[in-house]
Each structure stands twice: as structure tokens, then as C-alpha cells.
């Protein structure tokens, strides 16, 4: 009876699967196919030409470096917030949750323009750094890699916090107390209890943030401009401006392969580490 109901419940996923098949899998397949078609049929030519160009390796490097830095910043900033959020009660928790979720309703373009004001030479960050004596005079932050990482991390932070929070919430608080009773130091308890138990949240948070930042298009074009190309901006330009579908498909496929293999690979690796810890 139970397994019968279980089988029937699976049908609930049909609308979403159909939607994905039509609007995601089919275009993706077309894109993949397109990148293997040259003037005279099937070819790897597009890829070999793309990868033979040193400049494109720089673009790949830009894309991965920025995505990793953004993911790292989100993790370092977001993890403690997720712990705090899980511990907070009542009004404090409402305030925290609102502060994390509400910014999601503000469009990326608006955020990017706001960061433009904050990162200006007479903006808040430069003023703070000058008044604290870290900088002698205002430096340029806008259209620099640190500026891009700060801005992108701000946009993607909720996607790191929420998955970790949902896992932390499930941890039995008595585990922590039991560890203390047995004489473990707070650091030891964190390393041996909290960190392994939150690993699934960390993994999904990192997968979310990495996939979004590796493929972001609007944020780098507004916070870095045309002089810093990533695979996503190169793809966008090939389709939208140069009308070079073949090149666009090839860059999109390279991006897809890199992103999927890094997300899948790191998930597998951290699961192993999590299990052995």
C-alpha cells in the first residue's frame, strides 16, 4: 500500500519534468549539437580553435578565479550568519531572516548600480579606509577584481546562508552539550560535531553560489566592464552582438562542462572528506 502510494506520488514531479524537458533540456541539447557542427558537418574544430587561443585560457582563468573567490567569501561570511540564524529566536530571527531574504527581491541591476556608488573613490568604503589610515588616499575599487568579488558575493550571499541554515536547524542541540559534558573544547566540538553535520549544507551552498557566479553576466558587465571577459560575457556577446552562434555555443559548452565538473567533483570530494571526518 505504502509503496503503491509512493509510486503514485512520483507523478507529482511530471509538470516540473515536462517544463524542464521543453525549456531546458531541449535548448541545451540544441546548444551542444550546435557547437559540434562546422561548415562541413561534425567537427571538434570549434573547440580546438577556441582552446588553442591563449587569450581564451585567460578568460577561462578569469571565470574560475572569480567564481571561486566569490564562493569563498560567501562561505566565510555566510557560515557564521547561518549558525546565528539557527540559534536566534523570536524577533531577532525574524529580523535576520528578513535581512537575508528581502535583498533577493531587489534586481541585480539595481544592486550593481548601488555598488557602483559604494565603491566610488568618494564612496563609503574608500572613505572608511582613508579615515582609518589603511589608505593614504582614495584608490580605485570600481572596475577592479576585488570590487567585483565584493559585489557578486553580496548578491549571492543568501544562497550560501539558507542551505547551511536549513541543516544547522536540524542539529540536535544536545549533541553540543553532550560534547561539553565529556570535556571537549568549543573548537574541538565545532570541528568534530558541527562542521561534519553541516557539511551537506556547505556543499549545497557552495554548489549554488559557484554555479551562479561562474555563469553571471550582468554583474561583471556592470562592475568590471568590457575589459574583463568571462566565459559568460563572451558567450553573451557572441550571440547578441557578433551574431556568431557557433562561437557562442562553443563558449557556452566549455562553461557548462567546467561548471558541472567542478560542482560534481567538489561535491563528491567533500562528501568523502565529510564521511571520513
Amino acid at each position: 500500500m505504502n509503496s503503491m502510494a509512493g509510486k503514485r506520488v512520483i507523478w507529482l514531479a511530471v509538470p516540473a519534468l515536462a517544463f524542464l524537458a521543453i525549456f531546458y533540456a531541449a535548448p541545451l541539447f540544441y546548444l551542444l549539437a550546435r557547437s559540434f557542427v562546422g561548415p562541413s558537418g561534425f567537427t571538434f574544430g570549434l573547440f580546438s580553435a577556441f582552446l588553442a587561443d591563449a587569450y581564451n585560457w585567460r578568460v577561462i582563468g578569469n571565470t574560475l578565479r572569480i567564481a571561486m573567490l566569490v564562493t569563498l567569501v560567501c562561505l566565510v561570511v555566510g557560515y557564521p550568519v547561518a549558525l546565528a540564524l539557527a540559534r536566534a529566536r523570536g524577533f531577532a530571527q525574524v529580523i535576520l531572516l528578513t535581512a537575508i531574504i528581502l535583498p533577493l527581491s531587489v534586481g541585480v541591476v539595481v544592486k550593481a548600480f548601488a555598488w557602483q556608488i559604494v565603491l566610488r573613490r568618494d564612496g563609503a568604503i574608500a572613505r572608511l579606509l582613508v579615515s582609518t589610515g589603511i589608505w593614504d588616499e582614495p584608490q580605485r575599487l570600481l572596475f577592479t577584481e576585488p570590487g567585483l568579488v565584493i559585489g557578486a558575493a553580496n548578491v549571492f550571499l543568501p544562497f550560501m546562508i539558507l542551505p547551511i541554515y536549513s541543516v544547522v536547524k536540524l542539529i540536535d542541540p544536545r549533541l553540543w552539550e553532550a560534547g561539553a559534558t565529556l570535556g571537549a573544547s568549543p573548537l574541538y566540538r565545532f570541528r568534530k560535531i558541527i562542521l561534519p553535520l553541516t557539511m551537506p549544507g556547505i556543499i549545497s551552498g557552495m554548489a549554488f553560489v559557484f554555479s551562479m557566479s561562474v555563469s553571471m553576466f550582468v554583474i561583471p558587465s556592470l562592475l568590471m566592464g568590457d575589459r574583463f571577459q568571462t566565459l559568460a560575457t563572451l558567450t553573451g556577446r557572441s550571440f547578441l552582438l557578433m551574431r556568431n552562434e557557433a562561437l557562442g555555443s562553443a563558449t557556452a559548452v566549455v562553461l557548462l562542462v567546467l561548471a558541472v565538473s567542478i560542482v560534481v567533483g567538489s561535491t563528491w570530494l567533500s562528501r568523502r572528506i565529510g564521511r571520513s571526518a
Binding site: 570600481l142 572596475f143 556592470l222 568590457d226 575589459r227
Partner: peptide
């Protein structure tokens, strides 16, 4: 400072 592809952004700067 930058090379723009969005003109309004350049003018706002």
C-alpha cells in the same frame, strides 16, 4: 576607468 557597453552607466559615472 572602464570600457563601457551600457551607455547610461558611463554617463552616470
Amino acid at each position: 576607468l572602464t570600457v563601457y557597453s551600457q551607455m547610461p552607466q558611463a554617463f552616470s559615472l
